[in-house]
Design a protein around this nucleic acid. Structure first.
Lengths: 207, 207
DNA sequence: CATTTGTTTAACCAAATGGTTAAACTCTAT
DNA sequence: ATAGAGTTTAACCATTTGGTTAAACAAATG
């Protein structure tokens, strides 16, 4: 048996995965064409099926791998033993990190969730970890009761936090067009948000 | 020539459009099946094509009609002659209105923008009105300079405003699952946002 | 050199899908 | 009553697409 071929195997496999990710992100699962993926990867359809049995398998492979990256990290921060403000700062900063490295993921995930939430639940959140914001919600509630922050509905604050962190990635084309931002300008704006979003939130809720 | 048939014609056409909207929203343009739309509308494929030449035509009809509802309204608020805080309040309130009436639209629009921004530009924003937030941006800038609000980057504030207003609709399934909200609870939460979001923003930027 | 794995080429198949067609039936306005 | 619009039925066609297959080639390992 040959072993060193693995180098190439992994190379090709990675190429395919990257290509597929690109196409799936642009066109969605239904809109993506196996031929497009093969083209994007610079290989042919036969080889594509040599590596991945079928479209669904390919999709799931990508999706699960990426999803496994996203959600556990969420929970670690949610449950961390940190003061509220620090937790918010950390959340925004870390999540912008992950998203800058995988800018297509939010869209990917929302797409799946939107099309078949139940399936997503079984397929992804059963195997990785469903986001469990309870602890953070309780923490907010506690701070409100202690009177250390303004009276806010924890759910609303959570919605705001997630919206401001995630949405710019989902609505990127929209923002780029309406605010007339180049790629660089957009990334710069996003990076500023590591500071500006927590600042914005804290300014709003601190007494 | 018969004329009164129009009553039924409009009835059927509207039924088709509603059905198509539903299916397109769930499955996206590529994933939607004409047969599904026909079924959803309680008619047959032949009749579907009797009313709408092809899938693209049907899609565009829906899309343009809805988009024409969305964007002009945006600009009216952006350009309105109102104090900043009131403008923010009005924006959030009105947009939640439109979105509650057309909950699928944000997703629809983002989907299109994500798949082919250039095409969207030509097809939709050329014919309706591209969002032009300049005036609001300038207004924010002016307030900062006047010293009536905290020093904020207008672009960042704009991102925050749009994110908090739109994202809950886009991420609805995600929020419903993670926050364990029934349909009613979710709608209630959204409705509270008419007040809570402007409040949140104003609390953050007012001096 | 021979064997194995990776890869291409090119033809092919079956299923799904968008779209068409023609004939017949229903209803209603005139 | 009749003509035309709305509608159904059912068969049909062309194309796209996911996926397969077989033969041949490349490269490297043993």
């Amino acid at each position: 048996m040959v072993k060193n071929k693995k180098t190439d195997q992994i190379g090709t496999e990675a190429t395919i995965l990257a290509a597929a990710r690109k196409v799936f992100t642009r066109k969605g699962m239904a809109g993506a064409r196996m031929q497009d993926i093969a083209d994007e990867a610079g290989i042919n359809k036969a080889l594509l099926h040599y590596y991945f049995k079928d479209k669904e398998k390919l999709f799931d492979t990508i999706f699960m791998a990426e999803a496994a990256l996203f959600f556990p990290r969420l929970n670690i921060i949610f449950d961390a033993d940190l003061p509220l403000f620090e937790k918010i700062e950390k959340f925004v900063d870390e999540y912008i990190d992950v998203m800058l490295q995988h800018p297509y993921m939010p869209w990917f995930i929302l797409n799946e969730l939107n099309q078949d939430a139940d399936n997503f639940l079984k397929k992804v959140w059963a195997k990785t970890a469903m986001p469990k914001p309870i602890k953070l919600l309780q923490q907010i509630d506690a701070e409100v009761k202690k009177g250390t922050i303004r009276k806010v509905d924890p759910n609303q604050l959570m919605l705001n936090l997630l919206s401001m962190t995630i949405f710019p990635f989902v609505g990127k084309p929209m923002f780029q067009l309406t605010l007339r931002l180049s790629e660089k300008q957009f990334t710069a704006l996003i990076n500023e948000r590591r500071k500006s979003v927590p600042q914005f939130i804290i300014d709003s809720i601190k007494k």
